[in-house]
Design a protein around this nucleic acid. Structure first.
Lengths: 154, 154
DNA sequence: TAGAACCTTGGAGTGCGCTCCAAGCAAGCG
DNA sequence: CGCTTGCTTGGAGCGCACTCCAAGGTTCTA
């Protein structure tokens, strides 16, 4: 039972002010455990991302151990943000493929970003609707002294 | 292969202006397929919600078929909203239990609603952060004519 | 130089939220 | 009456996104 995990709730990782404990040196060859510390992802997940093609092939040391670059960390930042929107991993893999395929996929990438943007706007709107419902319910609970409150709000 | 499904994308169900095609009559004893039409959930899911305790025991016809009330539909509305926030089903079941247990769970319910509200606010903020990243990337793509665009934004 | 801590791989396992199945009962229609 | 359509149940199955395992090689610290 190795240690790992236990760092952060995995959902608010990217909510923290960026560039906080990242890029601690000017170096460009981070070990997997350093990347775990920076991103809050597990080593398992990092290797899995690579296997499924969500990451480019990560550079290796002479003995075959992963050495992540700043560019890789930038990519993980983007992936983290997209993950927060609920975008399926398969879609992110698709985007990664487009990037690997080169400049001629420019238009498709652009479209993908724009539809994702629309999705995010829609999700924010949904959440605002939910917030309104919660606020109504909360003020109902706050008002009704607790005397006759048995879930008949609205 | 029965029909069902195919109605709506399931994510924007509750985003539609409420009271739209709901409560079509003054009646209070909707069949499961009517509820499927109103909510966009599948009949499978509705039965499953009941099995796991996310719904109260639904009233039955003399032959044992479910007859949903307007109150049940209200509850499904709330569940739909909470689902959009990413709240785990187990937590919603917990809330449902509190409601069933009666008035003395008032404080706990209130707290649950308030923490959920905070979570929603946090999620909206995360999404706004993602939106900012997407906007930066999109304007990068828009500017760089497509000539030398090979994923080196930021 | 020993030992702990860390890294590698392919493949199997897990938890969540559904999703479907089989077998059978009930209601409406030509 | 037979047929179609819709409903019932418990339990099995599925897709996603990880999560972990076993067996072994590497790197760091004392």
């Amino acid at each position: 039972m190795t240690v790992m995990e236990t760092t952060g709730t995995r959902t608010d990782i990217c909510a923290a002010p960026p560039q906080q404990n990242r890029r601690p040196d000017g170096e460009d060859r981070y070990t997997i455990s350093e990347v775990v510390a920076f991103t809050g992802l597990t080593a398992h997940t990092l290797r899995w991302y690579e296997r499924i093609g969500l990451m480019p092939h990560i550079d290796r040391s002479h003995t075959g151990q992963r050495r992540y670059s700043n560019r890789d960390l930038d990519w993980l930042d983007l992936v983290g943000k997209l993950r927060l929107t609920g975008m399926p991993v398969a879609d992110m893999v698709r985007y990664a493929e487009l990037v690997r395929e080169g400049d001629h996929t420019y238009v498709e990438r652009f479209e993908l970003l724009r539809t994702t943007r629309e999705d995010v706007l829609a999700r924010i709107d949904e959440l605002r609707g939910t917030l309104a419902v919660l606020d109504r319910k909360i003020s109902f609970y706050a008002d009704a002294g607790h005397a006759l409150a048995s879930e008949r709000s609205r």
